[in-house]
């Protein structure tokens, strides 16, 4: 029966395909809407049904490649992709992803991969949520204070409380300086973009997924990319970096492609719905709605870690 658990021979796990499709569908909506891979849900969701972290990380990356193809295509049609920025970021992300994957291998050899990755993921997910709720709340309060003076238009609705920090970063005179006309960035050091993407890649290789949960906020707050463009560009960039990550993890025996394919069937329709929904929300609101998601991921990991129970 399709509703019962089925055996997936590559990872040796028994999972209900319906569970995978539903998880994929929800992650698809989140990915299309927030521009994130959804690994903070997918990783814990796979772990919760008894998959080891190394398989959860590798399989999630494979699933994210497929999901990002669908969502990025939809965002490209909506004009939300900065191709130049995406291609530059892919370089830094690949380097970071390889370092992250090597760290996973090191922990796997030492035999404590599940415990260490669980603790780090809880800390990261909780920190991101706290930071984003603080920033979005501050930005919306500032916008309310401006009241009648508030600027009109999508760009103005996408203000961030970190615009001062962003401007300072844009002024760092580290050669070569480049411009990103699509994102409205007049001048920025190439190295800033490489460092931001490398950090994102490191998280991607270590915790799985596209690491959009950390790259998307960094693109908005550090690079100064408008939220809608950060969402679309992040997805485009994830296709390249997650493809590399999938191949790298497959070589290390960490990918169950059958699980990823089944999850992707639900994600395909969810991603389309999520991408359409972005048209109805302004930047700070998108960021505020994002807040509970890493917390849900943290809660699932915490539950699995301390009870030892899998769903």
């Amino acid at each position: 029966m399709i509703f019962l658990a089925m055996h997936f021979p590559i990872s040796g796990t028994n999972i209900s395909p319906i569970y995978l499709v539903v998880v994929g569908f929800l992650i698809g909506i989140l990915g299309g809407f927030f521009g994130v891979g959804g690994s903070f849900i997918a990783g814990p969701a796979l772990r919760a049904i008894g998959m080891h972290w190394n398989f959860a990380v590798g399989t999630d990356l494979a699933h994210i490649v497929g999901k990002s193809v669908v969502a990025a295509k939809r965002h490209r049609a909506l004009g939300n992709v900065d191709l130049r920025l995406g291609l530059i970021m892919a370089l830094g992300t690949i380097g970071g992803a390889e370092c992250g994957a090597q760290l996973i291998q090191l922990l796997k050899r030492q035999g404590n991969v599940d415990f260490v990755v669980s603790i780090i993921s809880i800390a990261i997910y909780a920190s991101i949520s706290v930071f984003m709720v603080w920033e979005s709340w501050k930005t919306m309060r500032a916008q309310k204070k401006k009241g009648g003076k508030a600027q009109k238009g999508r760009q103005a609705a996408d203000e961030s409380s970190f615009s001062g920090l962003t401007k300072t970063i844009h002024r760092i005179p580290l050669w070569p300086m480049i411009s990103l006309p699509t994102s409205g960035v007049k001048s920025i050091s190439l190295w800033v973009i490489i460092v931001v993407s490398f950090v994102g890649g490191l998280f991607s290789g270590f915790l799985g997924g596209g690491a959009g949960y950390i790259r998307m906020p960094m693109m908005v707050y550090i690079l100064g990319v408008p939220t809608h463009l950060a969402v679309g560009t992040d997805l485009f960039e994830i296709i390249i970096s997650a493809s590399y990550g999938t191949f790298s993890h497959a070589l290390k025996g960490n990918v169950d492609i059958l699980v990823a394919l089944v999850m992707n069937t639900g994600a395909a329709i969810g991603a389309q719905i999520g991408a359409i929904l972005t048209q109805y929300f302004a930047g700070p609101k998108i960021r505020l709605l994002f807040v509970p998601l890493p917390l849900i991921g943290a809660a699932i990991v915490l539950y699995t870690l301390f009870t030892g129970h899998t769903f």
């Binding site: 494979a62 493809s243 999938t246 191949f247 790298s248 990918v255 492609i257 990823a260």
Partner: peptide, 8 residues
């Protein structure tokens, strides 16, 4: 690894 990418 290659088949994984082609399939997904």
């Amino acid at each position: 690894g290659l088949v994984c990418l082609v399939l997904i």
